[in-house]
Design a protein around this nucleic acid. Structure first.
Length: 365
DNA sequence: AAATCGGGGCC
DNA sequence: GGCCCAGATTT
């Protein structure tokens, strides 16, 4: 049994395109990335919007384009500055991939955004969705998209009761998305899919009565719009107990660059370690030992600064923050991955959210 | 084909 | 605490 047989016919599709595009012309939100078709700007917006809400991405987009207006500027900048502009957006790999891809475009595509979907998809941080989105929006190339909003809209239109995250469901919806594409205006059409999915065909209590394609929706006719798409399983959270130390040496503090395999790769952070001791004095000993192993500096843990609770992906972190002083060093641990910086220059470094909180704690008092 | 990536906002 | 978000990458 092939579920592709359930896809609507040509008459249905033509009606759908007309209704959707008509609605989009009247209801499209005024978003900053919609004021241009520059593939670079579209690209930046699409990367920022990956797993990130429109409202969150808006201000970041404007600020980022002001500082990095084109591919050449981005490619010529340091990864650290790019990440500084990305700070707070999360999934920092996106920022690093963006920077890396810009450099590749300078080297391989004469500084221009490539037009070939295959080439685009080979760039870091760009998968099938993002490639289709950029090329359709910037050039009206006839490429399908499929992301969270369109998945919800399309699965409801079909009353598809299978799991949309599995390959069978994905294959069906990609095919559907492709068949729906109009000959022209693929960019507006794809954005319209997402706009309806986001603003009308919402996860809970979808506004079916205001939906431009309600007459075409099988989920609605079967009153299944609240249960499609099927919900995925809940995430299993893991509790972590960690400590971070602000190690002072005069007016300077020690910062460490997070490396491969750690959280916040590429960002800077105060030395941090996992902790297990329960009693206060044992805890300090544990931190002193682990920080020495981590940084090469022998420290004395002093006053407690704060306890910060922070969630990241599936982890719930309880972070104990301390101030500390240096007693000595092993000198053999010289590294580009850590350095003493004047507290006044913390603004120049991309920090994790918890790192920035600690930075504010010690500079605003 | 399914888990993971090590995020963050909002209710 | 749970749910959601213009996915990509790894296993």
């Amino acid at each position: 049994m092939d579920s592709v047989e359930l896809l609507p016919d040509a008459v249905w599709r033509q009606s759908f395109r007309r209704q959707l595009l008509r609605w989009f012309r009247r209801n499209a939100r005024d978003l900053p990335w919609r004021q241009t078709k520059d593939p670079y700007a579209v690209w930046v917006s699409e990367i920022m919007l990956q797993q990130t809400q429109v409202l969150t991405a808006k201000s970041y987009f404007v600020r980022f384009l002001q500082r990095f207006p084109d591919i050449a500027t981005l490619a010529a900048s340091s990864e650290q500055e790019v990440l500084r502009y990305w700070e707070g957006l999360g999934y920092y790999r996106r920022g690093r991939s963006l920077h890396q891809a810009a450099q590749r475009m300078m080297a391989e595509f004469e500084g221009k955004f490539p037009r070939d979907p295959q080439a685009v998809q080979k760039l870091p941080g760009i998968g099938r969705y993002t490639a289709g989105a950029i090329l359709s929006i910037a050039f009206d190339d006839r490429l399908p998209i499929l992301e969270t909003n369109s998945i919800r809209l399309l699965s409801r239109l079909l009353a598809y009761q299978g799991d949309t995250t599995r390959s069978v469901g994905q294959k069906l919806l990609w095919t559907f998305s492709e068949q729906l594409l109009p000959r022209r205006n693929a960019g507006s059409f794809n954005q319209a899919l997402m706009e309806v999915g986001s603003c009308v065909c919402t996860p809970k209590s979808p506004a079916c009565s205001n939906c431009p394609v309600r007459k075409l929706c099988r989920a609605r006719s079967q009153k299944l719009q609240e249960v499609i798409p099927v919900v995925k399983q809940k995430t299993q959270y893991e509790d972590l107990h960690e400590a971070a130390v602000v190690i002072w040496r005069g007016q300077k503090v020690l910062l460490r660059r997070c490396t491969t395999g750690e959280r916040w790769e590429g960002l800077w952070d105060f030395p941090r370690c996992e902790i297990s001791a329960q009693k206060e004095h044992l805890l300090r000993k544990e931190i002193e030992k682990k920080v020495r192993k981590l940084t090469g500096f022998t420290i004395h843990v002093g006053d407690s600064l704060a306890t910060i609770r922070h969630g990241v992906t599936r982890f719930r972190i309880k972070l104990e923050c301390y101030e500390a002083g240096v007693l000595g060093s092993s000198r053999s641990r010289v590294s580009l991955q850590q350095k003493w910086i004047p507290v006044t220059t913390l603004e120049d470094y991309p920090l994790s959210v918890t790192g920035r909180k600690i930075s504010r704690l010690i500079t605003e008092s």
